[in-house]
């Protein structure tokens, strides 16, 4: 995928009618969603084929409705791909979405998604207060926070307050993790 590093200021000045380059990367970017959707439909299809349905089940069985959904997804994906390729070869892709010309920050994506992934996997080990504090810090970094120490302190404060309010006061259960021991 090609990274779009156009600054917002330039983007608004750029002529929206100017043809977009016909690079493979741009087409791939446009086809991200159809690829994801086709993968989802294929998951449904494969599982439908291996599904074990006894003969005694009346029509319409458990495969009936999912089969319609899967068929519809495949059909619409094909339509969408045709439309995208047509736009691409005509060179007017940016007209489709206003966001295409705006900056796309890969590092922010990594901070937020990576941070949440780490949070999910480590939550039960680290406990709510530390894990959520770190999640807060990661997302703040992803948003371009300039003061890492300050946002870490804020994060730990927020996670502690949340622990007190929701675990101790409202009775939701949050893991105490390595800080736990007693409570």
């Amino acid at each position: 995928m090609t990274q779009q590093s156009v600054q917002p200021g330039q983007a608004s000045a750029a002529d929206p009618q100017r043809p977009t380059p016909r690079t493979g990367g741009l087409l791939l970017k446009e086809l991200t969603m159809p690829i994801v959707l086709a993968a989802f439909a294929t998951y449904l299809l494969v599982n439908m084929l291996v599904m074990d349905v006894p003969d005694s089940v009346d029509f319409p069985g458990p495969r009936f409705f999912p089969a319609i959904v899967t068929g519809v997804i495949y059909l619409l994906v094909i339509l969408q791909v045709i439309a995208s390729v047509r736009h691409w070869s005509a060179g007017n892709l940016t007209v489709e979405g206003e966001d295409a010309a705006v900056r796309f920050s890969w590092s922010s994506l990594l901070w937020v998604v990576g941070g949440f992934l780490g949070f999910s996997l480590l939550l039960e080990f680290l406990g709510w207060i530390i894990a959520a504090g770190l999640l807060f810090w990661c997302v703040a970094q992803g948003f371009g926070s300039k003061k890492p120490i300050a946002s870490l302190i804020t994060g730990l404060t927020v996670s502690s307050i949340a622990y007190i309010a929701f675990d101790m006061a409202l009775g939701l259960s949050l893991p105490s993790g390595i800080l736990g021991g007693g409570f």
Binding site: F116, V139, A140, F143, G155, A162, L172
Partner: peptide
């Protein structure tokens, strides 16, 4: 500050779903 606001929202998402 925007980073804190969205970080707070993310923490809240995690809180709600885990709880």
């Amino acid at each position: 500050p925007r980073p804190y606001l969205y970080a707070g929202i993310t923490v809240f998402c995690g809180l709600g779903i885990y709880a």
